[in-house]
Design a protein around this nucleic acid. Structure first.
Lengths: 334, 334
DNA sequence: CTGAAAGCGCTAACAC
DNA sequence: GTGTTAGCGCTTTCAG
């Protein structure tokens, strides 16, 4: 691999001149620059990124850390982060946190291979984040609330969202409402559940333990939980799925059992992933402001990087999206 | 930021001893190691990844380069690449190629910030790839066919897939079949189109130009193209969408217009993305072996990295997935 | 087992 | 304008 030294030698100039020419410094004459560029071309010279980063001690790159690089939920968010990064002239890399403490994500964090990071990976422990963040390495956390210096939280009000969803179901005349949760240790799932409970108790309704199932936030889990409810024989009037993926799994389970949504049972999801409007029936759900959250997170990172002050916590709100998976049965009741 | 030098000083040992201790070299005594580790802890020492990479001149990281970090199609593929990378003790980062020659992807490629790369980004030009690949930097290309030293192709037989899809439609009794294509410059779209044409001509059918529309491989595009066909007034008996996303958009357009699938018109997609079986009706489609392709690509990369010889090109085949969006009307014809 | 020293490839003073 | 030089932080010979 040719180095800048080789280029300088071939061009017959000093090392630094080559460096200047290559980075377009105005000091070098056009003629010299041409010579250097030509030499670089001949040698198929490629600058070594690490050497540069090491020297500069900044990378011009931020990391987006995700538990799983796949998954529909993240799509919009990634896109918005991407956009903001590009606008700011920064590069963005996505790393996965699968593998726990040996994961790429943790390694990149610990070794500070980027200038900052946005975290959406519940499996990374709080301490790692707290230890890693610093005045020269800002971190924006989107998947939980941690109060610590140098850590900024961008959150979505899941409690309110859970409350809104449940409330909507109740106002549509439903009295028995199941909640299919995400993983038990999920911050988001817990918040939504709190909201669900609040709406229930406000309406004088009691939670029934047989109607609290876990679906792990995945389609398959929603499907299984729903099947289980069906097999048990007693169905609620409505079910609130902790996210859209599980709701979609649930829809399939209902369909397979000849139970029609929303005629026989109402369904509401959470997130408003892109596919939600394409399933049948189109899914009524609680929209999370994914793009907004992503943009905000990225903007905050760049603000910190450029020395501006930002708040420690930002709370975004959800929004009800009415489609066709919930039926208003309050009239029938009368 | 504390450096290894500070650690060595605090621990009262030489620089190299600290380095050895930190990397677990067996040369240092347990006692010394403990001293060093303790000093590192006290200083909250973090090794500088770049310095290490620079010295070692390898990164232990591979890059997966995607046009768009989002999108459902990639999910499974990413997951399988991830898995193989983890198994091989390598890190994986995903970079986007949006932004063309200024994109993160191109920068990482040119500056060789990883040990190798897997490409799934049609917007990166052939030359960039050819110039970048080398004996010390293997590249696996999944989105087109390029013959060049150091470049390995992992392809899916789209022509055969397009043929199979169309053939299936014809055998189910359909005589007029539309094709909704991806972008015109898409290698994949072209291949599928070739297969479509082959099946058509083999059956003595003619392609009708009014039934060749472009949907750009996105849901919205499929929706619009379908709407356009509907507005034009004359519908084919079946439509072959270049990918599932467009087919799902099409399904929605049909539903909105009161045209029922598959009773009034048959629909077939391509890819078999996860959601395909959850839409209504469940989508009949051509399955691309996404996980297999991802695993293979990653395995090849590691084989090359460890000095093994591999073939230049690997071709994977597709598979028909029969669900409910195609109706057999051949009986009716008789 | 430990320590001194030589760079990895590059940038950025600083002197000419 | 151009060249000399001192490191960035780390690994790794090579002597002791």
């Amino acid at each position: 691999m040719a180095t800048i030294k080789d280029v300088a030698k071939l061009a017959g100039v000093a090392l630094s001149t080559a460096s200047y020419a290559l980075s377009g410094d105005s000091r070098v004459s056009a003629k010299t620059r041409a010579k250097v560029l030509e030499a670089a071309r001949q040698l198929n010279y490629r600058k070594n990124g690490f050497a540069m980063d090491l020297k500069r001690s900044r990378t011009n790159t931020i990391a987006l850390i995700l538990t799983d690089l796949s998954g529909p939920y993240y799509s919009e968010l990634i896109r918005s982060v991407q956009e903001v990064a590009l606008d700011n002239g920064y590069d963005l890399i996505a790393c996965s946190s699968v593998g726990g403490r040996d994961s790429t994500a943790v390694k990149f964090l610990r070794e500070k291979r980027t200038d900052g990071a946005i975290i959406l990976a519940p499996n990374i422990r709080d301490e790692v984040l707290i230890e890693t963040a610093g005045p020269r390495f800002p971190i924006v956390i989107m998947d939980r609330k941690i109060s610590s210096e140098y850590l900024v939280n961008v959150l979505v009000d899941g409690e309110q969202g859970g409350y809104t969803a449940t409330r909507y179901l109740i106002e549509s005349g439903h009295r028995s409402i199941a909640y299919i949760s995400g993983p038990n240790d999920s911050y988001d799932s817990q918040l939504r559940y709190q909201g669900y409970l609040r709406a229930l108790s406000e309406a004088g309704l009691e939670e029934q333990s047989k109607w609290r199932l876990s679906g792990n936030f995945v389609r398959e889990g929603g499907y299984n939980a729903t099947k289980m409810m069906i097999v048990q024989g007693s169905l609620p009037e409505a079910v609130f799925y902790g996210n859209d993926e599980m709701a979609i799994g649930g829809l399939k389970a209902f369909e397979e059992s000849g139970i029609s949504v929303p005629e026989d049972i109402s369904v509401i999801g959470f997130d408003d992933i892109q596919i939600a409007e394409y399933v049948s029936p189109p899914l009524t759900t609680i929209r999370q402001p994914k793009s907004e959250a992503g943009s905000l997170a990225a903007h905050l990172l760049f603000q910190i990087l450029s020395g501006e002050e930002v708040k420690r916590e930002y709370m975004l709100t959800t929004e009800m999206v009415e489609r066709s998976s919930v039926k208003n049965i309050s009239v029938i009741r009368k």
